[in-house]
Each structure stands twice: as C-alpha cells, then as structure tokens.
Design a protein around this nucleic acid. Structure first.
Length: 258
DNA sequence: ATGACTTGCGCGGCAAGA
C-alpha cells in the first residue's frame, strides 16, 4: 500500500498538479493539507473521476485537510481534545489493507510563529493533543500512519541553513522536544527509518530563490505505529513537484507498506 | 535587509504562511 502526504497550498490552485500526481505516483491514500477552501468548494468531481474517494475537513480561507483513497474509507474529523478549536487541521480515515485495516491521519500542525504570541502556545497545545491521541491509538495495536505537515524541523541535518531557524517556531527546543516525545511513544519517522542522509527537504520558500539555492527544510513527515513500521518497504520525497510551473512550496512525501 | 513570493478575499491591500 502506497501512502503519500502533500501540503498543496490551495487545492484549487494546484488541481492540475494534483491530478498529474495521482496518475504518476498512484498512491492508495493521499493526505492533503492547506486545501484552503470549504468542503463545497473542493474539486471533488475531478478527483473522483481519477478513481479516488474524497473526504474533506475544510475551512474558509485557511487550513483545511483532506484524504483521498482508492478504497472507500471510514472518516473521523477533528483532533480529539479541541474544545472550541475552530481550525480544520485533522482528518482520520480507516481503509481496508489486505485482510486487515490501516488507519491514516492527515494532519496540519500549526506553524506557531511568532513564538512570542499565543500562536506558539496553540502549536504546543496542539502537539500535546496529538500525542494524547497517538497514545490512545497505540492501545489499539493497529497499523496506523500520522501523515502531514508537522511544521517541525526535527534535526539540524533537516535544514540547509539551520542557523537561520534558531529562534523559529519550527525549530525551537520546545517544538523539537514535543516532536521527540511523539517518537518516544513508539512511533517511527518513516524517512529516517529509510535513510540518515542530510539535505532531504520537503519545503522550499517561494521567496529569495530558496528553491534555486536548495535552501529547504524537512517538515512534512509520516509517523508510523510499530505495526506500520514493521511493514515499511520504502520512503521517498517527490522533489520534482517543486520544479513545475506554479508549484506548491511543499512537495509530496510517500511510503510503501507491504 | 522593516525585503524577498503566493494565497484568499474581493477589487485595495492586508493577513498568513514558514
């Protein structure tokens, strides 16, 4: 089973690239973030015509997540524990996988900048809620994957110029600490299970020629339950998607599970 | 370098992103 995740930075602006990606990568499940539209505005018909079931958790203007799946899925919207949280950042699907199931979440973790504001407190709180939910899911002993835009640079090797990120919400000690806490529950960073290589990025800013200079960061991740990690075959970043006309600033990252 | 793009909203120029 192939599972991919991609922050598209507006699904309506990225529809052509998205359809091309479904055709070339043929993911069984594709998690999307920053769809930036309400459910009714999502290009559902075009994606269904490409052979996918569509589940959205949209919002006007900002955020918004979705899960596209070849097989019909059972869907849950919203991260538990978000009393009064209006931001659409979490959707979870249960899909058939061989003679069992896989549970797959599409997550858009808050950016958190500037760190001196309540935006950062919201980010840290959201990470605590994600960890609490992961702890509950682990009890089920299922094959599950938490995939998405974490807005976390886990390690110095995950940025071309780590010094530039020293005081940023994506790299502050507290941010990385909470990401490690997630891993310490027993989750596996899929890309890091496949390689220790530095310089593997999933985001390049639109500004200042970041792509041309390869000034990128790795912030999109797939975290695997032990049952999923046991089945991990490969992980890959689809970097070529950043070289297209009118690209997203993020590229897809995908894994294959046996 | 108080910058640089890109998006939504909505029609002027700001907020948000990372």
């Amino acid at each position: 089973m192939r599972i991919a995740t991609w922050n598209v930075n507006s699904v309506r602006q990225r529809l052509e690239h998205l359809l091309a990606y479904l055709k070339e990568a043929e993911p069984d499940v594709l998690c999307l973030q920053e769809i930036k539209c309400v459910d009714e505005a999502f290009p559902r018909l075009e994606i269904e015509s490409a052979g996918y079931n569509v589940a959205t958790h949209g919002q006007k203007t900002f955020n918004g997540v979705a899960i596209l799946s070849k097989q019909p899925a059972e869907i849950t919207r919203g991260l538990p524990g978000g009393d009064g949280d209006e931001q659409a950042r979490y959707i979870e699907a249960v899909v058939p996988f061989g003679n069992t199931i896989a549970r797959i979440a599409s997550i858009y973790l808050p950016n958190g900048n500037p760190p001196t504001t309540d935006k950062y407190a919201y980010k840290l709180g959201w990470m605590d809620r994600l960890a609490a939910h992961a702890r509950e899911l682990l009890k089920l002993e299922e094959c599950f994957v938490l995939a998405g835009d974490y807005n976390v640079i886990p390690d110095p090797r995950d940025a071309r110029d780590i010094g530039a990120w020293a005081g940023d919400a994506l790299y502050l000690p507290q941010t990385r600490e909470k990401f490690r806490a997630l891993l310490n529950l027993g989750l596996t960073d899929a890309l890091r299970a496949a390689t220790d290589e530095a310089g593997l990025y999933t985001f390049w800013d639109y500004q200042a020629g970041a792509w041309q200079k390869n000034n990128g960061i790795r912030i999109d991740h797939l975290l695997l339950s032990p049952q999923a990690a046991d089945r991990l075959q490969s992980a890959a970043i689809d970097k070529h998607m950043r070289a297209l006309e009118k690209p997203s600033d993020h590229v897809p990252i995908r894994i294959d599970l046996a």
